[in-house]
Amino acid sequence: MGVAIRTAGEGDRELVVRLLDRAFQDDPVSGWVFPDPAHRRATHPKLMAAFLDIVLAEGRVDLTEDGTACALWLSVPADAHPENAEQGDDAAQLREAVDPDNERVELIGQLTAGIHPSGRAHEYLWMIAVAPDNQGRGLGTALVQHVLDRCDREGVAAYLEASCARSLKLYERLGFDLLGRPLDLPDGPQMWPMWREPQA
């Protein structure tokens, strides 16, 4: 049986923020950005909401019909330069809006922008979230494959940064390869940049 997927809109904002927050509360990178668990519980939803607002404005959010999984995608043109000064300004504004005293909110944006490939158009999987009690049912695979099928038809590459070893294996099964060295967060976990060429 297939997974029903639709495009999320503003009316889904609260649902998707809750979903992202639940799925990423225990993620290694979220734990690095917000080391104190109590502070993470209080502030993490604001970061997820800020990320979602960017993608609702500039990209696309795919949501399973039952609301238990979502994927945030941005289409990156060939002439985009993710590491430019504007990205640094965006990261600083994000920190100011979410958690002004937490430099890691800004740093994570700067570091991921610094490893983001440029020169070729691609679809960027910024985040994918599956509700914890629905993981292992193939929802994440269905959400990613939904876009990869279009990438293959249109001859477009795809890119992401995996934030844990378990997701790394999933992305490898979907045709992604490691791109360069992992990103070592200062005194924190690794993130793995991954690239997928369109497949025939």
Rank of each mutant, 00 (worst) to 15 (best):
M127D: 07
T43H: 00
G9R: 04
A129Y: 04
D62P: 05
E123C: 05
A57L: 13
R13E: 12
D26T: 12
L47V: 07
L143A: 03
Q87F: 01
V61K: 00
D53P: 05
T7C: 06
A78G: 11
I108M: 07
R137Y: 10
H39L: 14
L143P: 05
E65Y: 00
T68N: 09
R95Q: 15
V16Y: 02
V76S: 03
G114E: 13
P37V: 09
R137V: 09
P82S: 01
P77H: 05
M48N: 08
Q87N: 08
R41E: 15
A85W: 00
V29P: 02
H39C: 10
P132Y: 08
L107K: 14
T7F: 01
L94Y: 02
G119W: 01
G138S: 11
E106P: 05
L125E: 13
H81W: 06
A57W: 06
L72S: 07
D89Q: 13
P45E: 09
A80M: 06
A97F: 08
H116W: 05
V29W: 02
T112K: 01
V61W: 04
A80G: 01
V16F: 04
G9D: 12
A91Q: 01
P82Y: 02
P82V: 08
L52I: 13
G88T: 13
H122P: 09
A57R: 15
A129D: 06
A49T: 08
L94I: 14
A131C: 11
A142L: 12
F34W: 07
